[in-house]
Design a protein around this nucleic acid. Structure first.
Lengths: 156, 156
DNA sequence: TAAAATAGTTTGATTCTCAAACTATTTTAG
DNA sequence: CTAAAATAGTTTGAGAATCAAACTATTTTA
């Protein structure tokens, strides 16, 4: 690799690094503002995140969801109370072990989940606009690499 | 495009969409835990973000930084008090207009900024491991597409 | 079957955030 | 010029979010 190539790649790395930092914040903000323009006006970004998690991991217990989201059980209880009151989630007492509460979305919750998921899909489609199959595979590989990196650092 | 290709691409889109959602949370968490293992044990993820912003936008005013981070001025003042007390930032009264405070990193703040930046670079390098020049350009294009999408949605 | 363990909730303290009132300074209008 | 309006940042008071620890109900274990 000659030094010109090296410098150019370095600049690309810096561009990608800088872009990543700010993009996510903006996406979070846009997600919230889009959802609040819709019929789901009473939902914050954090609640959206919780609905997403419960939708993705259907009928998990309160403790499992708390662990996934790295929230204390007390905090999750408070959040669940709000989402239950607003009609997005239900608590289902497990009949095999009545200490356990399984969490699920209501039909209103599922509507919100799908609207949110559709927004993400639209974002990804926009992101990969004009990419062919192999390019998409590359992108997938990059994300797998990040997941591996996260796994390594977490394991240390 | 035949239906098999279409289904495969759809699956890839779903994979990418799902992966993106959880990766960011994990990165934030790892960033904080890595920084707390280092000599900068007194820094939270939010403070790291603020130091990053002040480092990136040197000598901006308090109001400008508040706008960039979408924080109220009062909240930013509180955060700045903490970071000043811990020795990461300084407030510099602007001599042309003495209402204005310009924000800058101390040398300790710059050390933290560089350590954080290095972590990001390492993450990007890991992410693009084994990618050649054109593939890296594609990745850059994907991010530009996202930025455009964000711009469009924000402008609406 | 009594003790230990587990799941989730409640409680009390702490921290974070915001909007509005406030202080200090600069700009503008008369 | 100078009084009023505007602007930058801080302070204040209230409300929301979070956590750890104590607590309740239930199940498992010894």
């Amino acid at each position: 690799m000659n030094s010109t190539e090296s410098d150019e790649i370095k600049a690309d790395y810096n561009f990608i690094s800088d872009a990543l930092v700010d993009i996510y914040d903006q996406i979070m903000r846009i997600e919230e503002s889009e959802i609040r323009k819709s019929r789901f006006k009473d939902i914050t970004a954090k609640e959206l995140h919780l609905v997403h998690t419960i939708g993705l991991h259907d009928h998990k217990t309160t403790s499992e969801v708390a662990r996934i989201l790295r929230l204390s059980k007390g905090t999750l209880t408070a959040n669940l109370n709000n989402l239950e009151r607003k009609g997005y989630i239900t608590r289902i007492t497990n009949q095999q072990d009545r200490r356990i509460i399984n969490l699920a979305l209501t039909s209103k919750g599922r509507l919100l989940y799908r609207a949110h998921y559709a927004f993400h899909r639209k974002l990804v489609e926009q992101c990969l606009k004009g990419f062919d199959g192999p390019a998409i595979k590359k992108m997938k590989q990059a994300l797998i690499n990040v997941e591996d990196f996260i796994g390594e650092v977490s394991a240390k």
